[in-house]
Design a protein around this nucleic acid. Structure first.
Lengths: 150, 150
DNA sequence: GGTTGTTAGTTACAAAATCAACTATTACTT
DNA sequence: AAGTAATAGTTGATTTTGTAACTAACAACC
């Protein structure tokens, strides 16, 4: 085997490449939770995110949700339309700026949010249980930094 | 404010929910690298992954790549077709099992892989520099566990 | 050796994401 | 106040993904 050929066998390991690892972990960890909101409520990923934002923070505009979760406005727009159609949220024009509308969950939307929150919390606990408390806390911190959320 | 209303203000924090955090971090961390393979080579995510698998491991079948990276066979099929069209890889029927074909990079494919690998390595280093060496190593380990890669 | 079941990979159709252009409203500039 | 630019959100066209059905080759069983 020549030196050139040895060179081909490189040491780069995909299984250590952070963007790849993050994607694999994100995809894998989304699966179980996705099963719930998708099969049980016919929801899409952006939809539960919007629902959660409203459930957690109360009244928000589409723009605000988009900024917080870094979701493009067309995605938000379509998710909001679907959630409104299913009577999970209500839109009211903002009288101070009539271009935007304030979004709030309906009682049904809130009920669904609360159910999903339960599932989310226990799933999160299940994932965190793979590590010690300190490790899990560190992981969350590191992910927030990678996500430029801090 | 009634107890019921106080109850609505819940302590669930999306910014700590692992599937959400993982997704945000994955998306954010993919951006810069995506810019390179997308703008420079008109490649899609699945395509660079296939390219990398072949660059790193040498000859593989579509099925093997799919298993290693947990990518669905239709995605692989299309990625392989595009890479073949651009002469980045070659397909040769496996004579022992003529259903499958062995995939290998062409010299051009290998050249592109090497360029992308450079970018990937320096980008990875840049991300890892957000943490201490020990933290980064722990992060990779935790992500592999979450991705069920170990 | 023919029937039935599996497997590798492709293709067709439906669902969803992306990108650009659009409407309506507000903000800025003069 | 008119004209221009900017912003919130929507819509339509294109691209990409996901799902299911398909072809071709192999395996197992009687």
């Amino acid at each position: 085997m020549s030196d050139a050929e040895i060179d081909e066998k490189d040491e780069f390991d995909l299984r250590n490449f952070l963007p790849f690892l993050l994607n694999q972990a994100a995809e894998e960890s989304s699966l179980e939770f996705q099963g719930v909101y998708k099969n049980r409520y016919g929801m899409l990923r952006t939809e539960w995110r919007v629902l959660f934002h409203l459930g957690i923070y109360g009244e928000l505009t589409a723009k605000e949700i988009g900024e917080r979760a870094r979701i493009h406005k067309t995605k938000i727009s379509r998710a909001v339309a679907k959630l409104a159609e299913r009577r999970f949220l209500m839109r009211t024009r903002d009288d101070l700026d009539r271009r935007s509308e304030k979004l709030t969950l309906t009682p049904q939307g809130l009920a669904v949010y609360k159910e999903l929150r339960e599932v989310a919390q226990s799933y999160d606990a299940q994932l965190a249980a793979l590590f010690t408390n300190g490790e899990a806390a560190l992981l969350r911190m590191m992910l927030r930094r990678l996500a430029k959320m801090e």
